[in-house]
Structures are given as structure tokens and as C-alpha cells.
Design a protein around this nucleic acid. Structure first.
Length: 442
RNA sequence: GGCGCGUUCGUCUAGUGGUUAGGACACAGCCCUCUCAAGGCUGGCGCACGGGUUCGACUCCCGUACGCGCUACCA
């Protein structure tokens, strides 16, 4: 049953200008399967449609896969002994295979195009996910003679795809369920070419939450949007794995090594799954919350740089990131959460000013707090907290009546990291200065 | 139309003849609390429908409905 050939999987996208989440998940499962079985993951670019293929479109695929951490063992930029890995460069191979079919009498011409004469038999697709499915190609309602080459000489997907998979010795074709119905025809082609078909695994499609088909324009459809918004690649990867597959023990946050260990094609659901941006978002928050600070900083720095934020030294940056890390679910939001640590030019949110500063007694409370802060020793969150609460008691106000104006005073915002930690990192001088400066806004 | 696949809370899922149908996201409420998160607790919400088979069906079989895919000189 199990073939003895080495495990070789592939992802064969056409460069359309975007890497779709569906495609990314297909790539992911192929990659996982190859990694699990110490096999080879091949990337092949199906650029048969010359007009729309551009270097940029290819780059989008490479970038997306790189970002997700799906490194390929053979393919563009990587080489390998089964190249070239662009269909547009494999013409001679296709000609050769076509002539072989010609010689064995499998072809005929139709309006200038070349078609494959199907043997018209019953074909059983023994799918690793869907099980055995019988397709009756003798059924008069079917037209099993697929076109191999157009009248203009260009190649049809079904043919080049099969030829490439034979040539590249692909052992497992893991692809979307939309290809299931064409698989019996592909199998006939393999047989006509005297090749053993690979094992097939057709996975359910990814839909929108309302069950409609996910297209390019739908929220979250393009992988490129995730790095932009500040997703951690490991979070999206984890989420994508859970669309159609699960470890079956109620766990959801799983690292890649464990997923690779537990993954089985036979365990993949047959039902198509809806992509839930909310849950994906939640998962990213979980990853950001639990990841170590070094990794967090690695992901965070580009967002800070892009926002023009600079920092004096690494130590300060780490402190800031540490207090803000549990609060943010997308790195995209990071700059507005931390900019006030690194500049005096931060802006004040009007609604927050109105609510917490422009109220009776706010100025007096800020003044009292500033004075109290002057003598806190040592200057750290716990002592700051103690003194602030003492001050509130002395003034006869609730803690919040000091905290809220103070937060707006030092950050310009009404939401943020812990106030005492914020004070500590800002330092005594800047904290007091900001408290006093904010009195003008009261 | 033909062929194929599917159908457990709104969504992702666990469940393979006997369960109070479990978990997660989202939602509501409460607790914690300096805001926002996180965390804790509670709640509402589900086996598409109809027939069988069986002592007993979410689970097996058939049908219906609905959804999706293929049926291209798209991939």
C-alpha cells in the first residue's frame, strides 16, 4: 500500500499577484507532510499564462512563503536536480511527453487543439483524505477527453501539471478539493504515460464565515496583509493548521514541531472550513502575549522604525516592550502605544483630555501628584504606586481620580500599559514635567 | 442538467451505537482591576429534515433539502 519512493511534495502556484490563504494552507500542509517524513518540499511556478506573470507576482509568493517560514528544498532561488522549476522553461519536456502520447495513439486534433483520448473507464481515486471514490468516465454525460495543448501552442494546466509531477517524482499531491473531480482524468494521463500516479490528498476549501467562497477581495484573503498588520507568522501558521485539522485533544496553541509530529493527512476533515478573522486575531494576541521578549522585539522593531521611532538604548526599548506586550494584539498598533516613551512631541487625544483633564479639580490633583512624586524613593513601580495611593487618600479622592488624569498627562491617551510602570520607565524628571505641563490642558 | 464532495452551537472543532453532546473564538453577565488587555467564573446558543436498521441513534443505511466543487482551448 505505502509506496516506497521517497516523499516529495510540492506547492505549484501560478503567479497571480497574491498569495491566497487557501494557497498558503495548501503550501503549509505540503510542507508539514514533507518535514514530518523527512521528505522534500518542492516549489514550482506554474507560469504558463505568460501575459500576467511578472517578477513582482512571483516575489509575492516567495515573500509570503518566507514569512510563514515555509522553506522549500527545491525550486526557484534554490535549484535542485529536477529543474527548471518554472513551467515556462520546460517546453522541451512537454513536447517530449506529448510525442510519447502521440506515438501510443492517445492523441487527436480538434479545431487545432490537441486532445487526449480518454480510455473511458471507471477510475477509482484512492484519496488519503477523501477515501476511495469511483468516477465513471464511461458515463455518457461526461466528456473525459481533456485538452492538452491549445491551438496557439500553449499548454493546458492538466497536462503540464501531470508531466511536471511525474518528472519531479512527486510522491504526494496535496491540493484543494476543487481538483478532486479532475483527478480521474489526471490518473488516466499518468497511466497513458506509463507512470505510477502519486498519492492524492484533496483538502477541503477555505470559505468565508458566511459560507461563500473566499476570493481575493475578502478580509484576510491575502497573506501579504498579515505582516502589514503585525501578525506573528507563527500565529497565522497555527491558525491555518486548525482549519480542517486538529490534534483532537482540545488544544489549539501548538508549536510547529508538535504539529509536525501529530499531523496526519487521514485526520483532515472533509468538510470545508470557514475562515474566522476574529479567532485568527485572538490567536495572534495569544502568541504575542506568550512569546519571549527577544522574539517580540524582533517582530516589533520594524514597526517602530517605520513609524520613525528611535530609542536611546536597547534596555529602554525592552522595558517598554515588556509592559506593552500583554496589551496589544497586533503589532500594527504598537507605535501609538509607545511613541510617548521616546519623544516629548506626542499628541493628546481630545476625547481623553475632555474626559480626564478638563474636569473640576484635575489641575490640583496633578499638581499634588507631581509634588508627591518628587520624593518617591527609590523610583520604581511599587513605591510609585504606594505614594500615589497615599496621595489619593490625603486628597480624599479615589485612586482612579488620580490615575486617569495622570495617564492622559504622561501619554496623551486614556489607555495604555500599567501607569506605575510607565512612570518608572519615563523617569522622575519627565513624569513630573508632564504632570505639570498637562495642567495647562485642564 | 450530469458527476463528485459535504452538512455537530454564528464560526473552528471533539465525538465513530448508550455522553447531562466536550473545548475554543465571538456574544452577555460577574469577579479581578489605574485604563486596556490578560486571567477566573457563569450564561445563552448545536447534532439540516424525513424514513429505516436497532432494545437504543449525532454516530450505520436510504431519501430530501441546502451548500460547495468539477463538468473550459481557467488554474
Amino acid at each position: 500500500m505505502t509506496s516506497q519512493r521517497p516523499i516529495r511534495t510540492r506547492f505549484a502556484p501560478s503567479p497571480t499577484g497574491l498569495l491566497h490563504v487557501g494557497g498558503a494552507r495548501t503550501a503549509l500542509f505540503n510542507w508539514i507532510y514533507a518535514r514530518k517524513h523527512a521528505g522534500t518540499f518542492v516549489l514550482r511556478i506554474e507560469d504558463t499564462d505568460h501575459s500576467r506573470n511578472t517578477v513582482e507576482a512571483e516575489k509575492i509568493i516567495f515573500d509570503g512563503l518566507h514569512w510563514l517560514g515555509l522553506d522549500w528544498d527545491e525550486g526557484p532561488q534554490k535549484g535542485g536536480s529536477y529543474g527548471p522549476y518554472y513551467q515556462s522553461e520546460r517546453n522541451a519536456i512537454y513536447e517530449d511527453y506529448l510525442s510519447r502520447l502521440e506515438k501510443t495513439g492517445h492523441l487527436y486534433e480538434d479545431m487545432g487543439a490537441i486532445r487526449f483520448r480518454s480510455p473511458r473507464e471507471k477510475v477509482i481515486v484512492d484519496d488519503l483524505i477523501c477515501g476511495k471514490i469511483e468516477f465513471d468516465l464511461t458515463n455518457p454525460g461526461t466528456h473525459p477527453d481533456i485538452t492538452l495543448r491549445r491551438a496557439d501552442g500553449s499548454w493546458i494546466f492538466h497536462f503540464v501539471n501531470v508531466v511536471d509531477d511525474i518528472e519531479m517524482q512527486i510522491s504526494h499531491v496535496i491540493r484543494g478539493e476543487d481538483h478532486l473531480s479532475n483527478t480521474p482524468k489526471h490518473i488516466e494521463l499518468y497511466r497513458a504515460l506509463g507512470a505510477e500516479p502519486p498519492r492524492f490528498a484533496h483538502m477541503p476549501l477555505i470559505l468565508n464565515r458566511d459560507g461563500s467562497k473566499m476570493s481575493k477581495r475578502d478580509t484576510g484573503a491575502s497573506i501579504a496583509t498579515y505582516p502589514e498588520q503585525g501578525y506573528a507568522p507563527e500565529a497565522l501558521r497555527n491558525y491555518l493548521c486548525l482549519l480542517g485539522w486538529s490534534p483532537k485533544d482540545n488544544r489549539e496553541l501548538l508549536d510547529m514541531a508538535e504539529i509536525i509530529q501529530l499531523f496526519e493527512l487521514s485526520q483532515i476533515n472533509r468538510r470545508s472550513a470557514a475562515f474566522d478573522p476574529d479567532k485568527c486575531f485572538w490567536m495572534n494576541g495569544q502568541y504575542l502575549l506568550h512569546m519571549d521578549l527577544a522574539r517580540y522585539a524582533e517582530l516589533a522593531v520594524p514597526f517602530l522604525e517605520k513609524a520613525g521611532i528611535t530609542w536611546e538604548n536597547w534596555e529602554i526599548l525592552e522595558k517598554v516592550l515588556a509592559i506593552v506586550k500583554p496589551k496589544i494584539k497586533m503589532l500594527h498598533d504598537l507605535p501609538e502605544w509607545v511613541s510617548y516613551f521616546f519623544t516629548e512631541e506626542f499628541s493628546f487625544d481630545e476625547a481623553s483630555v475632555a474626559k480626564s483633564l478638563r474636569v473640576a479639580g484635575a489641575a490640583e490633583r496633578l499638581k499634588a501628584l507631581a509634588e508627591a512624586m518628587a520624593t518617591v524613593e527609590p523610583w520604581e513601580a511599587s513605591t510609585i504606586e504606594t505614594r500615589l495611593k497615599e496621595t489619593a487618600t490625603t486628597l480624599g479622592v479615589k485612586t482612579g481620580e488620580l490615575v486617569h488624569p495622570a495617564r492622559v498627562a504622561v501619554s496623551g491617551r486614556s489607555v495604555g500599559a500599567g501607569l506605575y510602570e510607565t512612570f518608572e520607565i519615563l523617569g522622575r524628571e519627565r513624569t513630573i514635567q508632564r504632570l505639570l505641563d498637562a495642567m495647562r490642558l485642564c
